[in-house]
Structure formats: C-alpha cells, structure tokens
Nucleic acid binder design. Structure first.
Lengths: 301, 301
DNA sequence: CGTACGGTTTTTTATTATTAAAGACATAAA
DNA sequence: TTTATGTCTTTAATAATAAAAAACCGTACG
C-alpha cells in the first residue's frame, strides 16, 4: 500500500545473474560498489543481500558475502504490475484520443483512465497538469479535467504558431555559412527523400517519420529551449493526426516529399524570399492536411 | 485523512446567513435549488441540512425544512487549515525563488516546500510538472525536482523568443484598419504613459504593471492561444524579476516609458520597418534589464 | 401521467497514511 | 587513513480513505 518495490525486484534479479557469473565460494564486492553497479541506493542493495541470505544463495558473515550456490528459477521474486512513467504516457494518451476519436469537451476520468493506461492515477494527474499548459486539457473548477484540444480552432492556431517559428528558423538558415552542419544534414535528407520517392508505392507510410526528422532538423538551428519545447508539441499533434488520417495517404505524402525537396533547394539558394515562400507553401499544405484529418475524425469543430 | 471539507464548511456558513435573511418559521427551498445557489452538489447541501437539523437551527419534517431560530456564533463549524490552490501557488513560488535568491541547480524538496507554502504536497508536484514544460524546473531520473530556470542562457532564450512573438504581433498591427479597437487602446495607453511620466518621481513603481498591460495589449491582437500562454510565462518571469531589481529603477522605468511612447508612435505610422525597429529597440533594453537583474541576484550563470 | 423532490447508491476526486528508496551520519574493520 | 557496514532520518511514490459529485430510483403532488 505504498510505492512499488520495482527497484528491489530488478536489483534482486540482476544480482542473481551477477552471482551466477562468479565462482561459488567467491566474495561479492562491497555494498557501495554493488549500489553503483546496479544504479540503486545502498538501502536497496542491503535489502537484496538480506533476501539472498534468507534464500541461502549467499551467506553474510561479518563483511564477507560468500556465494553458496547457483540460482534457480524459484529464487526470483515476482515483479509488481508494471506502471508506465509519465514520458511513456504521452504517446499512449494521444493515441487513445485519436484512435477512440474522443470528442472535445469530454470529461477525462482519472480513476478510470489510469487503469486503462496502467499508470498511477497520480501520474495521470501530473500529466494532465503539464498538458494544460498547452490547452490540450483544462482543469474544471471543482476538480477533474476536460479534453479541449483538437478542435478546428486549435489546429489553426497551432499551424499558425508553427509557421511563425519555422519561418524564423528559415531566416536563420539562409545566413549560415557553407561550413555549418545543416547543409550536410540537408544533403542527407534530400537523399532520404529521393530514396523514399523511388519506393513510394510500398513505403509511403515511412513519410510521417521522415517529415518529423526534417522539420526537427530545420528548427534545431535555432538554439532555443522554447522553440524546441513547442516543436515537441507540434510534432506530437501533427504526427499523431497524420497517423490516423489514411485518406489519400500515398498521394498526400508524395506531394509533401516534392514540397520538401523544393524547400531544400530554396534554402540552398540562400535567397530569403524564395526560401520563406517555399516554407510557407509546404506549411500551408500541412495545415490543410491537419484540418482534413480533423474532419475525417468527425469532430472537427 | 482524505480531502478537506472546506466546501461543506463554506456551504454551512453561507446557509446560516441564508436562514438569518428569512423569517423564522419559513420553509427553505428544495435541495436542488440550494445546491445551485451555493454552487455545490446536493450531497453537500444534504450534509449541511443534516447538521443544521442536529444543531436545532432547522427542523426537517418530510419535505419541509422549517427555520427554527436565528444563528449564533457557536453554530459555525470551524474551518480546516486553508490550502492554496495551484493558481495561487504560481506567484508564491516565483516570489520565493527570487526573494530567497534560490540558485539554479537547487533540488526542490516537495515535502518541505509544501509545508512552507501551505499547499498539499500533491498540488506542488502537479505544479512542478506543469512548470517543467517551460524548463523552469526539471524532473530528476529517480524522482524529485531541480530548479533550472533563471540562468543567463534561459533569460537570453526567453528574450529572443519574446522578440520573435512580439515582432510578429507588430507586423499584424500595422495592417489593421483604423476601426480596429487596438488604436483606441493605444491612445488610452499613451495617456496612461504620459500620466505616469508626470508623476514618475513618486510612482515609478507603477510601471511594472503598466508594462505588462502594454505588452499584453500588443500581443492580444494575435488571437492565438500559444502566443497568449507564452505571454503569461514571459510576463511572469520579467515581472517578477523587475520587482526585485531595485537598482536604477526610477531611471530605467522612465527610459522604458519613453521607448513605449516611441513604439506607439511607430505603430501609428503604419510603417512596418520603423515599427519593428522601435519594438526591437525596446525589447533589447528589456532584455538587458532582465540580464542585469540576474547579475544583481548574484546567480547569473 | 408527468414532473419535481428527496432518499440511496455508485463513482470520482483530493488528501492523508504508509511503505520503498535515498541519503546522511556514525562506527568499526582493514 | 580509508573503506565498508550498521543505523537513523528524510524524501517520494503509491494505496487507502473521506468528501464531494453524480446517477439512479421511488414517491408525492399537481
């Protein structure tokens, strides 16, 4: 009825393999050394050693920890049900919203969802609190949460914001010297795009990943944590939506690839106006795709 | 050992005043009506009514709720210790960071801080989780939190990002027709600035508030929730820092007012270049002020 | 016959209590 | 003197719990 003993269980099983890798009769290293090796505190190491002593795997005499026998399957302690941590939760949640086609305005039930996602209710609460900064969910006055994001307005404003950030990145890129790594990166990306174009009929699915990589590369020339943070939200939303919008996917992706290639060329020209124009053209297409995937998901407004 | 009964206590005291405002012998409205009026659920209303019955303030007979007597001070139930909610916490926390001059890298102790701020540990945890989206605090791998924001780099990147957003707002404003409310708003703001300039020697403190109002007005022409959300973070950080940077405050503020006035004039000219130049000039000054207040607080890097 | 009301039960949420883990300090052995 | 262990304190993650909300259902009154 308190925190899980996952650390203890993991340390225990790892300790078994450490023992098995050593001679019977050999001495285990110090508690501090073991703690460092297992990446846990000494408290956990001591609990594990005590358990192993109890199990007659080792014998503790004074400061000596003598290995007595090989481990068997029954020595293992069973693990508590695994709980996801807050980072793993992010993808799961957006997946659920889009897969289940959860309409905006839905009240989000922490108790129920925590079971569904196999996370602690507490973790979900924290996650919602952080999401509320981007307006994807909002806190109700008397407690509880409501899904707010993924409306048409939200998508429009997100797209606009994305354009603002990316146009800024573009204006940085065109001023960068030839020696900057971005140009090499763009060469690679150009190859990757051409590659995918050759096998587009089979692998058009792969574009979603390439799209994310491409935009991240563009925006990474600006070393700004706020740009990066928003970039994460943006790619989260766009990426997840595109994943569920299957209409015309092949054609859409082929077009987008060509736009990316034009975009790369325009950047290389170092002409600010044409680079920004190419960027805007592509981002406008992307916006339309996002809007149409909202319509496809039937709860567009 | 569960949630506080603040709602019950508040509903109870309000119900006492409702009873006192009515005749003795009169009947109280239905539970639903009372629930609506008090802004709580029927469950709370029923608990309150039961308590009042117990206290012989009213008598419940069938569906009738008869008022029996006037209330006395002893009828009131004592309130549980008040806990701040998450919104009130925000200001308190930043205040603490700046007032106590907490250096970046400090580990934040939830158990201890929750007592200091008189909030539930849980609430503080949620708050940190939401702050972590802006990198002000970060989560440590094995649990716990570290203060990260308010470094020199953070201030620089925040200022850059702010400039990016505000320059965008400026380019919107210069295209707006005369009929748009922003022009009226700017006229008002110009008056407020001139007013303050007249009494700058006494009231230079008031600039901080005016500064926030001014920039919010500028950025509100862009109807975008991300811009707005970020504007909140910006004014939070800038506002709180300026509050604690007392060096040259009078001179700084007077200069800033003049920059604001130039800025307003430039906007009115509808010339994009001069408007953006004025904006950049002021934002650069603001950035320097933020940086110098970090230095004044001794933990600038 | 319908509708408003109150009794009852079921969810759901916010907070406390509790246990796991981390860390600090003291002490003893090498 | 250094390094390892024993002991104690502090901190954090989760489960238990009470408060509040909401749903359900019967009943009385028009």
């Amino acid at each position: 009825m308190a925190r899980t003993n996952t650390r203890f269980v993991e340390a225990h099983t790892e300790m078994l393999t450490i023992c098995d890798a050593m001679e019977i009769g050999a001495l285990l290293p110090s508690e501090n050394a073991l703690a460092l090796r297992l990446g846990v505190s000494r408290t956990v190491v001591r609990r594990v050693l005590a358990r192993l002593d109890e199990q007659a795997m080792i014998v503790l005499q004074g400061r000596e920890k003598v290995i007595k026998r090989r481990s068997t399957k029954t020595d293992r302690v069973e693990a508590p049900p695994v709980l996801l941590n807050i980072d793993e939760l992010e993808g799961r949640f957006l997946d659920w919203v889009l897969r289940m086609d959860v309409p905006p305005g839905t009240t989000l039930n922490v108790a129920q969802l925590s079971k569904e996602f196999s996370v602690a209710a507490h973790t979900l609460q924290e996650f919602f609190s952080s999401l509320s900064r981007f307006g994807i969910v909002v806190r109700r006055p008397k407690g509880g949460w409501v899904l707010h994001g993924f409306t048409r307005d939200y998508a429009l404003e997100l797209s606009d914001f994305r354009t603002l950030l990316e146009i800024n990145s573009v204006s940085h890129i065109v001023t960068l010297p030839d020696s900057h790594e971005i140009w090499l990166r763009l060469d690679q990306l150009e190859n990757d795009h051409n590659d995918l174009l050759d096998r587009i009929d089979q692998d058009f699915h792969d574009f979603s990943q390439l799209d994310e990589t491409f935009h991240t590369a563009i925006n990474n020339v600006v070393t700004n944590r706020f740009v990066k943070e928003f970039q994460k939200v943006i790619s989260l939303v766009f990426h997840y939506h595109f994943q569920w919008n299957k209409s015309d996917e092949r054609v859409r992706n082929e077009n987008a690839i060509r736009e990316h290639l034009d975009y790369i060329d325009a950047l290389r020209s170092r002409d600010l106006n044409s680079a920004q124009a190419a960027a805007k053209r592509h981002l406008a297409t992307s916006k339309q795709t996002l809007l149409s995937s909202l319509k496809a998901n039937s709860h567009g407004s």
